[in-house]
Design a protein around this nucleic acid. Structure first.
Lengths: 135, 135
DNA sequence: TTCTTAAATATGAATGATTCTTATTTAATA
DNA sequence: TATTAAATAAGAATCATTCATATTTAAGAA
């Protein structure tokens, strides 16, 4: 998950707005949209600009601190976890959770060691696991 | 792949515009955007409305004739193949190809028969296979 | 500490894909 | 052939995102 140290290690300037975006990722669960992040931050910093947040998110993505998550309806959501992982989706509730499973990754890697896809060189495989959360 | 018979079997009206959208799916490869579909159709039917195409695509999706494909940059693309399948993506060229692999599906289903995900009931699993096309 | 400067931010206008509204037309059927 | 619900064309409206610009600021240098 994104944090201050990771931000510092990129060489980017540490600004109150960037700290606020990081805080938003820590506090907000479920892969927030840009608007949700702005809403969260405005509780404490009412003057943050929407454009600024979009800009910060873009920069953070470039620096591999966060990932964009495309959703069914088109609006972007953002994931504070950059490292390789999969997603659990519930279309009903719109909830998204990260799913990490090294054993599964191994299984799939092994599978594609034997069975090549013609005309395609695989670099990365992500699973979109659709279903329902039970709680 | 979508075709006239499938359209008829939904009970929807068969209109020239809908036939043209079906033709666009058959002719255009690589999961076209709404704009690309409009462009293709306008070669023969210059007066088709953009809103009409969006409306047809929405209806077709509801009736399970096509699928929406979300892309990295946000604009929707459409897939004339509805049946369960995976996608090969190349971020460089923006090309998307369908990938069908029953053996792989079996493997994954078996895996999740043993290893349940806590608090989640799986309904469907799709793979996003990122890499490069070689031709 | 103060200065310097490139980088970051706020603001609001612009864009572009998609949706909506409304009047008109048409496919299907009786 | 007449009827009618559904489909379409046209263009306005929306909404997320991007862009342009003037202002401010973080971080390193002096």
């Amino acid at each position: 998950m994104i944090n201050l140290d990771k931000l510092k290690s990129t060489g980017l300037k540490v600004t109150p707005q960037r700290l606020a975006v990081i805080e938003a990722f820590v506090e907000l669960k479920n892969h927030p949209t840009a608007e949700e992040i702005v809403g969260f931050i405005r509780q404490k910093h009412p003057n943050i600009g929407v454009g600024t947040v979009y800009h910060i998110l873009e920069i953070f993505e470039e620096k591999k601190l966060i990932k964009k998550v495309k959703t069914e309806n088109g609006t972007m959501r953002y994931d504070g976890l950059y490292e390789h992982h999969h997603h659990l989706y519930c279309e009903e509730s719109n909830r998204i959770e990260d799913y990490i499973d090294d054993e599964l990754d191994d299984l799939i890697i092994k599978y594609f060691k034997n069975k090549k896809i013609e005309n395609f060189k695989i670099e990365d495989i992500k699973l979109q696991i659709n279903g329902k959360f039970i709680d």
